[in-house]
Simulated assay, not measured.
Amino acid sequence: MKKIILLLLITFTLSCCNKDDDTPSNPVDQLPQATQIGANTFGCLLDGVVFKPGNVSNPLDAQYQLINGSFYFSLDAARRYDNSNYISIGLGTLNLELFQGNIYPLLEQEDGKANGSFFYNTSITYTSINKTGELKITKLDQVNNIISGTFWFDIIDSQGVFHQIRDGRFDVQYTN
Rank of each mutant, 00 (worst) to 15 (best):
L46F: 06
Q159P: 09
T122G: 13
V161Q: 13
T23D: 12
Y104M: 04
L45D: 01
N68M: 11
E97I: 10
P32N: 05
P24Y: 04
K19L: 13
Y86M: 09
T23Y: 15
F162M: 01
I156T: 09
K3F: 10
P105S: 11
T41C: 05
N85H: 13
P32A: 05
N40R: 01
S15I: 05
S57P: 03
D29I: 09
Y72S: 13
E134K: 11
G92V: 06
D21M: 04
L135F: 02
L31F: 07
Y72H: 11
S117F: 14
L135K: 02
A114W: 01
C16I: 13
N176G: 09
I146G: 01
S84V: 11
T138K: 14
L96H: 08
A78M: 11
T13V: 13
S25N: 02
T41K: 03
N144G: 05
Q33I: 14
Q109K: 12
F12V: 07
Q109F: 01
I165M: 05
N40L: 00
I165L: 04
T150V: 09
G101Q: 11
F12D: 08
D167V: 03
L106K: 03
L91N: 11
F73I: 09
V143N: 10
F119I: 04
N83P: 00
L75M: 04
F42V: 08
I37Q: 15
G168I: 01
L98Y: 00
D167I: 03
I37Y: 11
S123T: 11
P105V: 08
I147G: 03
S88D: 13
N58A: 09
N18T: 15
S70H: 15
I89K: 01
L98T: 00
S128V: 07
D21V: 06
Y174P: 07
G116W: 12
I155M: 03
D157E: 05
Q33V: 14
E110F: 09
A114V: 04
Q36C: 07
I87Q: 03
L91M: 11
V172T: 01
T23K: 13
H163E: 03
D154W: 00
K52S: 06
I37A: 13
L94D: 08
G101W: 08
D171I: 00
F170G: 00
Y126D: 07
F51W: 08
Q65P: 02
D29W: 10
N130W: 05
S15G: 07
G38F: 08
P32S: 11
L140G: 00
N144T: 09
A77R: 13
K52C: 06
D167K: 10
Q142H: 02
I155C: 02
I146R: 01
V28E: 11
Q65S: 12
Q142Y: 07
R79T: 14
G101H: 07
N40K: 00
A78S: 15
G38E: 14
I5Q: 09
I129T: 10
D157L: 06
L91T: 05
G133V: 00
L45Q: 01
N55A: 12
D22Q: 06
Y120W: 03
L96C: 03
R79I: 09
F151C: 09
R166C: 00
L98D: 00
S158T: 08
P53Y: 02
